[in-house]
Amino acid sequence: MNDSSSTLDSADAPEVASNEPIISIDNLSFSYDLGSTNTLRDISLEIPAGKVTAFIGPSGCGKSTLLRCLNRMNDLVDTAKVTGGSISILGQDINAPDVEAIELRKHVGMVFQKYNPFPKSIYENVAYGLRVQGIKNKSVLDQAVEESLQKSALWDEVKDRLDSSALGLSGGQQQRLCIARAIAVKPQIVLMDEPCSALDPIATARIEELIAELQEDFTIVIVTHNMQQATRVSNRTAFFYLGELIEYDDTSKIFGNPTRKQTEDYVSGRFG
């Protein structure tokens, strides 16, 4: 596509000035049943570039749904529909007709709750995203694989067995491999949906360290049920309740001195 307004189509999307939001969500309403009921209602929020933003809230409030709106994974649900408002990423409305979800996803990577490496070798897992983009050059792939594994702090553990199956790794290693796989295509944004919920505390701590390091290169949006985790890893926190955004502020403010009563009740563990 040669439409200059569609920035997402170019592989080298423009750098975003650090004060500008990389994602801005404007009055978004979203429905899983073609508009009969709105799962998300009137959500407006701006996510800054180069920071970690946490989504918190009780189960079923729509955190995952919002996250999956950001890379249009909800397209997979036949009856899903954005019923109002818009989402702009890098200045481009991602639901515009000339935006290709496939191109968008190269810029907005995702790590899932249940670690899901392919039953292929470690190398092939990391190289997967590049291969589907048609990159065949061995040295380019080698370099990308090494770099991604380095960044996801897995290189030293797996460098001698890149060709063995990814399923032989521990759960925490598998999740870090999934992170490596996501960042190998060099997205600007990485979405993480409860990346540690299937892991033990030690593996969780490693992922949290990793998130802190990745923050330098990527904008990270993370969904978590773990309050301590949100305070440890995020700069900004959004609290959702029943499909609505209740409060969105600096993490220290949300956990230290929230404005809304519901937020206070939730972060102090009184409900949820």
């Binding site: 890379n71 994974m73 997979l76 496939i102 191109e103 996803r105 190269k106 990577g109 995702m110 899932f112 249940k114 899901n116 490496p117 392919f118 997967y128 995203g129 589907v132 983009q133 999934c178 796989r181 996501a182 295509v185």
Partner: peptide, 14 residues
Amino acid sequence: PGGFREASLALGAT
């Protein structure tokens, strides 16, 4: 597993 499909599509596969 559906996770394979999601992971693949999320990486920009058609």
